[in-house]
């Protein structure tokens, strides 16, 4: 349960390069028929540069920084995020989490969340609170 992190320090980044196959499978498992995610012509018709990454897939990518960086001994309790910029297939989406606060007993951690594209522009910004499970 010990986290060797001090406020200001990050967890390891998680990098996702979404593919058409990934977006199709995410659409399928969530039964999301919105064509911007799997129909390139329709996405272009709506002014997008490619197949659009689902907002919840952005969030899942950001949350993987916590679940993979902290492990199962910690539970995500609260998350707040905003989609700042859409992303498309082929973008390189780097999710980052930085510890900003640790409770006195060390059992509650607060992180900033951020996901940036290959140009360093933010796609998602937010925060999360995690607690020790035991």
């Amino acid at each position: 349960m010990t986290v060797i992190l001090s406020p200001g320090e990050p967890l390891p980044d998680v990098v996702m390069v979404p593919t058409a196959l990934q977006l199709f499978r995410y659409s399928a498992v969530t039964w999301n028929a919105h064509r911007i995610h799997y129909d390139r012509e329709w996405a272009a018709h709506e002014g997008h540069e490619g197949l659009v990454v689902h907002s919840h897939l952005h969030a899942a990518n950001a949350l993987r920084v916590l679940t993979q960086g902290l492990g199962s001994e910690w539970r995500i309790c609260k998350v707040a995020y905003r989609i700042i910029r859409s992303a498309v297939v082929g973008d390189t989406l780097t999710a980052q989490a930085e510890l900003i606060e640790r409770s006195d007993d060390g059992r509650t951690l607060t992180f900033t969340l951020r996901e940036v594209n290959q140009d360093g522009a933010a796609c998602l910004e937010g925060s999360a609170i995690v607690e020790a499970r035991h």
Partner: peptide, 15 residues
């Protein structure tokens, strides 16, 4: 209309 997700606040109370 064009519709997209813009964000979410989540309280995850139980696994």
């Amino acid at each position: 209309l064009r519709v997209m997700g813009a964000g979410e606040d989540m309280e995850l109370l139980q696994s």
